[in-house]
């Protein structure tokens, strides 16, 4: 069991969460590429929380990561900030001059593309975002332990 970690929602703490998820993914047999994908999805989700969730600028983030019985990586991210469902964010428009493109939306786009499934629930005062991803290498380890 890997439990969870909880830190203040500050950019400087993101690396702690990333290292924790990297360890779980690595121990679960995920390939270097899929671990990189997990780190990216996690960073983008955490940056959103650090920037926008807490209007007073203070609050915590909790991340719990585990591999399930199908060797899928389950990353659960909880904050007590403003309700924010990334599933409702529209994709950025890719038209016109890149130098005029608004940067917003790129992070959410990357989260969506990096993972297999995303769920969002608002429970009480909590945002609960769950990122689910599989990896052929990890699943091969079930067959050939």
């Amino acid at each position: 069991m890997y439990g969870c970690i909880k830190c203040p929602a500050k950019i400087e703490h993101i690396e702690r969460f990333v290292k924790y998820v990297r360890t779980v993914a690595d121990d679960s047999g995920f390939s270097r590429r899929r671990i990189n994908n997990a780190e990216l999805a996690l960073e983008e989700a955490l940056v959103n929380i650090c920037r926008y969730a807490y209007s007073e600028g203070r609050g915590d983030i909790e991340v719990a990561c585990r591999a399930d019985e199908d060797h899928r990586l389950i990353i659960r991210i909880i904050d007590c900030g403003k309700p924010f469902n990334i599933l409702t964010v529209s994709e950025p428009e890719f038209t016109g001059d890149i130098t005029n493109r608004e940067p917003g939306g790129m992070g959410v786009l990357l989260i969506r593309k990096m993972v297999d499934d995303i769920t969002y629930r608002r429970r009480g005062d909590k945002n609960i975002l769950t990122l689910i991803m599989s990896d052929k290498r990890a699943q091969q380890m079930i067959k050939d332990p």
């Binding site: 990189n36 990216l40 940056v47 130098t99 940067p103 790129m106």
Partner: peptide, 11 residues
């Protein structure tokens, strides 16, 4: 590794 923050810097 690059995230959207890296892309924003290049932009």
């Amino acid at each position: 590794y690059i995230s959207s923050a890296g892309l924003r810097s290049i932009l």
